Simulated assay, not measured.
Amino acid sequence: MTTLSIIVPVYDAATFLPNCLATIRANRRDDYQFILIDDHSSDETPEIIERAVRDMPWLTTLRNPENYGVAKSRNIALTHAEGRYLTYLDADDWYHVGHLDRTLAALQRLDVDFVRTDHVRVDQMTRVIERAPEERRDVVLDPRSQIGAPGYRTVVDYPFLWAGMYDRERIDPALFAFDESLRTAADRPWFWRLHLNTESTAVVDLNGYFYRKDANPTALTQAGNASTLHFLDAYAGIRDLAVGSGNAGYVDKAAYGALRIVEFHVSRRARLSHELQRELYHRSSAFLNSFPPESVRTALRHFDLSKRIVLGKILRIEAD
C-alpha cells in the first residue's frame, strides 16, 4: 500500500540528478512512491535515470515523447500517483534525511487538508533558512486567512509546491491540475485555487528541504525568453479567481501581487530582447488596467515612490 507519492519533474538535469537520486534513496520507505518524469531531456538525463532504475527498481519512471513543460509533466505524473498523500521534489534540490517522514507525521497529526513548511535556500556555499510567511505555527487554520491584504507577503504568495504536503482524500482532485499553457508561474494560480477551495491547513516548523537558488541554466525562473512572459497569464488567472470569489479584499490583494510581479520583471528587463521588452510593457499595461481601478489605487499605496513612478508609467501605456 502506498502512503505518499513524490512527483519529481526532470529536464536536462544531468548535473544535479545524481544528488537528487541520492536524496531519494536516503528518504526511501517501502510505502513511498517516487515518480520521476523526464520532460524529453536532451542531455544525459535519460541514461542517468536508466542506470538508477537498475539499482533502484522501485522507482516509477516516465518520459515524455516531446518537451511539454513542467505543468503538463506534473499532471501526467499525477495520473500515476498511488498514494493518499502527495508532495513534490525539484531535480536540483534535496531533502534532509527524515524530512518526508516528519512532514507526513505533522499532516496526519494535525488532520488538515495540507501543511506548509519552511525550507533552506542554497546559494552556492551559503545556507539560509527561509520561513513560510505565517507566524501561527502548528495550529489548524482556514486557508482563506492566509490570503491576507495588499502590502504583505502571505502563505498564498509562498509558491513552493515542495514546501508542503497534500491530502488527496480531502482535496478535490480538480485542484491538483496545473494550467498546461503556462511554461512558468503555473504554481501561482494553483495555490490561490487551493486556498480558496479547501477547508484546513497548518504551517509547521520543518526546514529539511534544500532549495538550490544558485545558477541553473535550465531554470525558467532565470530565463529571458518568451516563456518568461507567461507570468502575465498566470497572474491573470489569479485576478479571475479573486474577482470570482466576490471578495473585494482578495481583488485588492491580487492587484498588489500583479503590480509587484510586473515591477519585478520590468526591473530585470535587460535579460529580454528589445522586442520582448516592448511586449512586456504593453501586455503588462493591458493586464494591470484590467483590474478595478480602485483596487489598483489601493495596492499602489504599498509601494515606495520610485516603484510607484515606474508602475504609473506602465499603467499609462494602455491609456496613451
Rank of each mutant, 00 (worst) to 15 (best):
I7N: 02
V10Y: 14
V10W: 09
D12G: 07
D12C: 11
N19S: 15
N19D: 12
C20N: 12
T23E: 07
R29N: 08
L36N: 04
D39N: 15
D39Q: 11
E47M: 08
R51T: 13
A52D: 06
V53M: 10
R54K: 15
D55H: 11
L62K: 05
G69S: 09
K72T: 06
I76E: 08
E82P: 00
G83Y: 09
L89M: 06
L89I: 06
L100W: 03
T103S: 14
L104E: 01
A105L: 06
L107C: 05
L110G: 02
D113E: 11
F114K: 00
T117N: 13
D118S: 12
H119D: 14
D123M: 00
Q124W: 15
Q124L: 14
I129P: 01
E134C: 15
E135V: 14
R137E: 12
V140C: 07
I147A: 04
G148I: 01
P150E: 02
L161I: 11
G164A: 13
A174H: 03
T184N: 11
P189C: 07
T198L: 00
E199H: 10
T201Y: 05
V203W: 01
D205V: 00
L206W: 01
F210W: 03
D214G: 03
A215V: 15
P217H: 04
P217T: 04
N225R: 06
G244T: 11
A248G: 00
Y250A: 02
G257F: 12
A258I: 06
F264Q: 13
A270G: 10
R271N: 07
E275K: 09
F291M: 05
S295I: 00
L305I: 15
I314D: 02
L315H: 05
I317H: 08
